[in-house]
Design a protein around this nucleic acid. Structure first.
Length: 552
RNA sequence: UCGGGGAUCGUCUAAGGGUAGGACACCUGGUUUUGGUCCAGGCAGUUGGGGUUCGAAUCCCUGUCCCCGAGCCA
């Protein structure tokens, strides 16, 4: 987390502040549609708009639900969005709903009709599409375009009163059917929808379209800089046109490139599909790029905000590397998490020269990056587990771990030397016989003897079983969107569940708590944990230059 | 094809007439009771072609490529 980077949007705000364009106010907003859970791409937008409000003195940012389409929106999504924004650590100045302005929007529409700039059109959806023209040919005027103002007023009111069925009529702005920007070809601004709305119930049966609603929301809330993604660039002329025609306050819309990440998908539609079709456990599945998924995975708000900072804001399309997100997490967790020992793939070790019934309490430091984290005691006795991968019968060059006749350090404990490997009838190693050097307690020797490897371990008699969920990327293709069907790119091995052996101090770990399991990675306690069974998610592995070296 | 945007190391992002810089990734080496962290170093870029200029990533001309747009979605 270095110092705040600037970007072209902040440059514009700086300039506006210099010229006094908005009376030196800065007021942004984050306007999600509650039709799904927020994802890391939204986090970027949240950090942008809320971040500006945090950094400019006196600046504000609203959280506003763009709830103009009751057929797709749900209270569950509203709740999750509120939780996610809070969790990221942002505070809004006003919590707003577009639906709170439905009456004002209606009045504005009446105003537009009275100005002769809007009309009720009886064309069907199909007919509207056909008469809109194409990218290269202009459209043709609706036969209803020249209705009188009085007739339009009457019809629109009756639309509002529920006199007409869904789809039978719309209100359209009267602009220019030959406009090269399709959005300006008499866009629909109200449609009839007899649907139950999460906030207004059945009060309304006509609902405003995005283009009509959004600018009005911004204007009503006195937003100064309305930040949105690139695909709305073509809508800006319409945004400006409406507010100009209505002669009302006009904020400035600025577009930036949305966040894309490799090895994942980011559209709410596709994420919803993954949930609905049970490819994942839910919106908060730790493999999902949703904020709730990342939270459950063990990400911290700080790491996500740092990531948003580092990817920056620009206008060119880009795909950020998931490795950067992981880096931000590791960097944050390295500083703050306590170390623990856990064995993911246990191999029994018997220390033959250690007293049969003795148990020692050894001192272990909690976090070498943070002295204030203190230490803890860990039990040690004759039988322990180590990682299966930490022993090799025929070790290659540069293998620093255990082998027959090799000596290594057990972290915080003793040096041990392996004397024998015991195999079962299938030839699989089931146990190691080692001897320890009592003079190396704590992991030091006085004689200057060096060991190259240090292993983590867990005492068998005190070990606790834990369910450990190891995640791999959800998609095996770098760009799942490029597939014919993104579901074909789903990685069948994205979740591996194992039973690991963890040190006893982890017994009372709380849900959501993060740890570094020495040499294994960062893990956090999943909400599925119970009194009988603790469940850990691997948030991200440690960097592993040994594994990397041996890849090929 | 019409309109709107955009092209800088592998990736993301700075520099907007004056030494193309940072981060991630990757590669070396050092330190280390985590093959982690940390430290030092390295690799690597201005979309092509013209022009203006003492000097161009930046200004001009001209190509090329990419993205968005024809929902009663947002």
């Amino acid at each position: 987390m270095t110092e705040k980077k600037t970007n072209f949007i902040r440059d514009i705000i700086d300039e506006d502040l210099k010229t006094g364009k908005f009376d030196n106010r800065v007021h942004t907003r984050f306007p999600p549609e509650p039709n799904g859970y927020l994802h890391i791409g939204h986090a970027k937008a949240i950090c942008l708009s809320f971040g500006i409000a945090e950094d400019y003195s006196g600046a504000k940012c609203n959280l506003r639900f763009d709830d103009t389409n009751p057929t797709k929106e749900e209270q569950e999504y509203i709740d999750s969005i509120i939780e996610d924004v809070k969790w990221l650590g942002f505070e809004w100045d006003n919590l707003c709903y577009a639906s709170d302005y439905f009456q004002q929007m209606y009045d504005f529409a009446v105003d537009l009709i009275q100005k002769g700039k809007a009309y009720v059109c009886d064309l069907s959806g199909e007919e509207i599409r056909k008469t809109r023209g194409t990218l290269t040919e202009s459209g043709e005027n609706s036969p209803f375009r020249e209705r009188s103002i009085d007739e339009n007023l009457d019809l629109f009111e009756r639309m509002k009163n529920g006199d007409f069925p869904d789809g039978s009529k719309v209100l359209r702005a009267k602009i220019d059917m030959a406009h090269p920007n399709l959005n300006m070809r008499d866009p629909v601004i109200y449609r009839i929808l007899h649907a139950e709305h999460p906030h207004t119930g059945d009060k309304w049966c006509i609902y405003p379209m995005y283009d009509w609603a959004h600018g009005l929301e911004d204007s009503i809330e006195n937003i100064t800089h309305s930040l949105c993604t690139l695909e709305f660039e073509d809508h800006r002329p319409l945004y400006d046109w409406f507010l100009a025609e209505l002669e009302t306050y006009r904020p400035q819309q600025i577009e930036f490139a949305r966040l894309s990440l490799n090895y994942t998908v980011m559209s709410k539609r596709k994420l919803k599909q993954l949930v609905d079709e049970k490819f994942v456990l839910g919106w908060d599945d730790p493999r999902m790029p949703t904020i709730s998924g990342l939270r459950r995975r063990g990400f911290t708000p700080e790491s996500i905000r740092d990531f948003a900072e580092r990817v920056g804001i620009a206008k060119r399309d880009s795909v950020s590397d998931i490795a950067l997100l992981e880096h931000c997490l590791r960097e944050d967790l390295n500083k703050r998490t306590e170390r623990r020992m856990a064995i993911l793939d246990p191999l029994k070790v018997v220390i033959t020269n250690y007293p049969d019934t003795k148990t020692e309490e050894l001192d272990a430091i909690n976090n070498p990056e943070d002295e204030s984290a203190g230490g803890r005691k860990i039990p040690f006795s004759k039988e322990i587990y180590i990682e299966r991968a930490d022993f090799m019968e025929n070790p290659p060059r540069k293998f620093f771990r255990l082998g027959i006749g090799r000596e290594v350090r057990l972290k915080h404990a003793y040096y041990i030397t392996c004397n024998d490997a015991i195999k079962d009838e299938n030839g699989e190693i089931v146990e190691l016989r080692c001897s320890y050097d009592p003079a190396t307690k704590g992991g030091w020797s006085d004689d200057g003897r060096k060991v190259k490897g240090t292993l983590h371990w867990v005492d068998i008699s005190h070990a606790i079983d834990a369910e450990i969920r190891l995640f791999d990327r959800l998609f095996s293709a770098e760009n799942p969107d490029a597939e014919d069907d993104f579901r074909n790119a789903i990685n069948p091995d994205s979740l591996t569940t194992i039973i690991g052996k963890i040190e006893p101090s982890l017994k009372n770990a709380e849900i959501g708590e993060n740890f570094q399991f020495l040499r294994n990675g960062y893990f956090c306690v999943d909400k599925d944990s119970t009194a009988e069974k603790i469940v850990f998610n691997r948030s991200v592995g440690l960097r592993d230059s040994w594994a990397k070296k041996n890849k090929n």
